[in-house]
Measured scan of single mutants.
Amino acid sequence: MLEGKVKWFNSEKGFGFIEVEGQDDVFVHFSAIQGEGFKTLEEGQAVSAEIVEGNRGPQAANVTKEA
Rank of each mutant, 00 (worst) to 15 (best):
G35E: 09
A49M: 15
I18R: 01
K65T: 11
R56F: 12
E42T: 13
I18Q: 00
E43S: 14
F9C: 04
A32G: 09
V28A: 02
G16W: 04
N55V: 14
V20T: 05
R56Q: 09
K5G: 01
V47H: 03
A60I: 03
F38Y: 11
A46E: 09
E66P: 11
G54Q: 05
V20L: 10
A67S: 12
E21D: 11
G57R: 08
N10D: 10
I18K: 01
E36H: 12
K39Y: 05
F15Y: 14
V6M: 03
I51P: 03
K39L: 10
G22F: 07
H29Q: 03
L2E: 04
A67V: 12
E12G: 10
E66I: 15
H29R: 04
A61P: 02
E21M: 11
V63D: 01
K5P: 02
V52L: 08
D24R: 14
F15I: 08
E19V: 11
G22M: 06
N55I: 14
F9H: 00
K13F: 08
N10H: 09
G37S: 07
E21C: 14
Q34C: 14
E43I: 15
F17V: 08
F9P: 00
D25G: 05
A49W: 13
G16R: 02
H29N: 02
E43C: 14
A61E: 08
A60S: 03
K5L: 09
Q34V: 14
A32I: 04
K7P: 00
Q23M: 14
V26Y: 04
Q23S: 11
V26K: 03
K39T: 04
A49C: 15
K39N: 06
F15S: 01
Q34N: 13
F15D: 01
A32H: 07
G37I: 05
E3Q: 15
E66C: 15
A32C: 09
E36M: 11
Q34Y: 09
A67Q: 12
V26T: 03
P58W: 12
D25L: 10
K65W: 09
N62V: 10
G16P: 00
A49H: 09
E43N: 12
V6P: 00
K39W: 06
F15V: 06
Q59H: 09
A61S: 10
N55H: 13
G4W: 08
E21Q: 12
K39Q: 09
E42N: 10
I33C: 08
E50K: 12
G14Y: 03
R56W: 15
G14V: 02
G16F: 05
A67F: 13
K7A: 04
Q34P: 06
K65Y: 10
Q34S: 11
G35Q: 09
K13H: 09
E19T: 13
Q59M: 11
G22T: 04
Q59V: 10
G16Y: 04
L2K: 12
S11K: 15
V52H: 09
G37M: 05
A60F: 02
E19W: 11
R56S: 09
V20E: 02
E21R: 11
L2A: 09
V26A: 04
Q34K: 11
V63G: 02
V52T: 09
T64N: 11
V6I: 09
G14P: 01
G14W: 04
T40L: 07
N10S: 11
N62L: 11
S48T: 14
K65C: 10
A49G: 12
G54C: 10
M1E: 07
I18Y: 02
Q34W: 09
F17A: 01
R56I: 07
P58T: 09
T64K: 14
F15P: 01
L41Y: 01
Q23V: 09
E12D: 10
G14A: 01
T64S: 10
E42D: 09
P58A: 08
A46F: 14
K39H: 05
V20D: 01
E12Y: 13
K39R: 11
F15G: 00
G44L: 03
R56Y: 12
K7Y: 05
Q34G: 08
G57P: 04
F30A: 05
Q59G: 03
L2V: 15
L2S: 08
H29T: 03
E50C: 14
V63W: 02
H29F: 10
V20A: 06
G37T: 06
V47P: 02
G4L: 06
V28S: 02
M1I: 13
S48K: 15
K5T: 10
V63H: 02
T64M: 13
E66A: 14
A49V: 15
M1G: 09
K65L: 12
K65D: 04
G14N: 00
T40E: 06
E21L: 11
V6H: 01
E50I: 15
L41H: 03
N62C: 12
V6G: 01
A49N: 02
F9V: 00
I18D: 00
A60C: 06
L2P: 03
F17H: 01
T40W: 12
K39S: 04
E50F: 13
A32S: 09
G16I: 04
G4N: 01
Q45G: 06
G16C: 06
A61Q: 10
E42G: 09
E21N: 10
I51L: 10
K65P: 10
F17T: 03
E43D: 09
Q23G: 10
W8H: 00
Q23H: 14
F27I: 01
F9I: 00
V28F: 12
W8G: 01
F30D: 01
V63I: 07
A32F: 06
A32D: 10
E50V: 14
L41G: 02
D24P: 15
M1H: 12
F17R: 03
E21K: 12
G22C: 08
N10Q: 05
G44T: 04
F15A: 00
G22K: 04
K65G: 08
E36R: 10
I18H: 00
D24V: 12
T40H: 08
F27Y: 07
F9S: 00
E43H: 13
T40Y: 11
E42L: 13
E53A: 13
E12M: 13
V28D: 03
V26L: 13
G37L: 05
S48M: 14
K13E: 02
E36D: 11
F15T: 00
F9W: 15
E19D: 06
E53F: 15
L41W: 03
A32N: 08
A67P: 13
D25A: 07
V28L: 06
Q45A: 09
N55P: 15
W8V: 00
D24W: 10
K7L: 06
E3R: 15
G44F: 05
P58F: 11
V20Q: 04
K65I: 14
K7T: 05
R56C: 13
I33D: 05
V20S: 06
K5Q: 08
I18N: 00
G44N: 06
V20K: 05
E36Y: 10
L2D: 03
K7V: 06
A49K: 02
W8C: 09
A67C: 12
T64E: 08
G14S: 03
V63C: 05
A61K: 11
S48R: 15
F27T: 01
G54M: 08
E36V: 12
K39M: 07
I33Y: 03
I51S: 03
V28G: 03
G14E: 00
G22D: 07
K13D: 01
K7S: 04
K7D: 01
